[in-house]
Simulated scan of single mutants.
Amino acid sequence: MTFRLQFLSWLLPLVALLPGAPVHALTLHYQAVDLPDTIAGSDLWRYDYQLGGSVGSFESVNLLYSPMSYSDLDLKSALDSSRWSSLVIPPDPAGPADGILSLTAVAPQGASEQTNFALEFIWLGSGTPGTQPFELLDDSFNVIASGSTVPLGAPAIPEPGSLPLLAGALGWLAWQGRRRL
């Protein structure tokens, strides 16, 4: 093997060890609560949410609500305005465009912090409302992570961390070095 190829075989794994984009372990738990119906023919519900995980300044969490299943979205709990900015966009069945609950972090949220909030809505679907998709957007509105909400009490599946990736890269380097001996 030429020196050049040998050098590249050692350089490529080292590039994998360089710091890259942050790994986000965001959890979003919900509990669906059936509320007394105030308008005949409508099925009023509330999601009680618990948001946990790291969110950087001006990153946004967007929850998405299908126009086939949801209408009349109404954020019911006031979030701390020094930490969060919120926006509710109702679903548009004529579009059809998903409804969005967007929460933007005004200040960074630490991994151990938890934010609770509630959203009332009219349920148009059958059965009981379930999980909702969500996206984490960076300050340039690029989707950097996505997932689905998890029922309260169910274990969340964490995103892969960087330590196992680092351990794998170091193991591969050790294996390569041993193979050459």
Rank of each mutant, 00 (worst) to 15 (best):
L103M: 06
T104R: 03
A105L: 04
A105C: 07
V106N: 00
A107F: 04
A107S: 13
P108I: 05
P108R: 07
P108M: 06
Q109C: 07
G110W: 02
A111F: 03
A111P: 07
A111Q: 12
E113I: 06
E113Y: 03
Q114H: 04
Q114E: 06
Q114P: 01
T115R: 00
T115W: 00
T115A: 08
N116D: 13
N116K: 11
L119F: 09
E120G: 07
E120A: 14
F121R: 01
I122S: 00
W123L: 09
G125E: 06
G125D: 04
G125F: 10
G125R: 07
S126V: 08
S126H: 08
T128D: 09
P129S: 10
P129F: 07
T131M: 07
T131S: 13
Q132P: 05
Q132L: 15
P133M: 11
P133C: 10
F134Y: 12
E135G: 02
E135I: 12
L136S: 04
L137I: 11
L137R: 04
D138T: 13
D139R: 15
D139K: 13
D139L: 14
D139S: 15
S140V: 13
S140G: 08
F141K: 06
F141Q: 09
F141S: 14
N142S: 11
V143L: 05
I144K: 02
I144T: 10
S146K: 08
S146A: 15
G147T: 02
G147L: 10
S148G: 09
S148Y: 13
T149V: 12
V150I: 12
V150F: 05
P151C: 09
L152A: 12
A154V: 11
A156Y: 05
I157P: 00
E159H: 11
P160H: 06
G161W: 03
L163S: 09
L163Y: 06
P164Y: 06
L165C: 05
L165S: 08
L165I: 10
L166V: 15
L166A: 14
L166S: 10
A167G: 04
A169T: 14
A169L: 08
L170N: 01
L170C: 10
L170G: 05
L170I: 15
